[in-house]
């Protein structure tokens, strides 16, 4: 569901996501117990709807109708990847300006992050975006 903004607390639907970005930040909710997992920002996901034909072959199987989900926690130092670089069409971290390509498994395009954002496989169940599997990698930044 939406983590912030006018729709905070409401369930995110694919229609809530503007085609081509920017991303929306969301926390997952347990579908049975209805518990929102918002106790830690490590659970924040960035949802974005893209043209499915623009997704790479590695990205498309974990997406649904062009909607992709990534950990919103930068792999550099754990800041929230909350901004959108409209020109380059990249997910942008405010702390140290790393840019990730959401069309290609959040590959690092520019900036200091050492690895891509973990992807969260998703599917739709009765029109609701649902988690379909574990993050593809370790969530969080580097720690010294």
């Amino acid at each position: 569901m939406f983590a912030f903004g006018d729709k905070e607390g409401q369930i995110v639907t694919p229609e809530d996501l503007p085609l081509g970005g920017p991303q929306q930040l969301a926390y997952p909710m347990d579908p049975v117990a209805k518990i929102v997992r918002n106790g830690s920002t490590l659970n924040l996901a960035a949802l974005i709807r893209l043209d499915p034909t623009q997704l790479t072959d590695e990205t498309r199987p974990l997406a649904v109708d062009g909607v992709v989900a990534y950990s919103a926690v930068c792999t550099h130092q754990g800041c929230t990847v909350s901004m959108w670089q409209a020109q380059a069409k990249t997910l942008f971290c405010a702390c140290h300006a790393t840019q990730f390509d959401p069309r290609d498994r959040a590959r690092v395009v520019d900036g200091p992050a050492p690895r891509r954002l973990p992807m969260l496989p998703i599917k739709t169940v009765d029109g609701v975006l649902t988690v379909a599997g574990e993050f593809t990698g370790r969530v969080g930044g580097e720690r010294l």
């Binding site: 912030f4 903004g5 006018d6 929230t80 909350s82 901004m83 959108w84 670089q85 409209a86 020109q87 942008f92 405010a94 300006a97």
Partner: peptide, 15 residues
């Protein structure tokens, strides 16, 4: 919108 602990300057860095 103000969210505690989040960037709140009135302009995003890429802009």
């Amino acid at each position: 919108q103000y969210v505690a602990g989040q960037w709140w300057t009135g302009v995003d860095i890429p802009d």
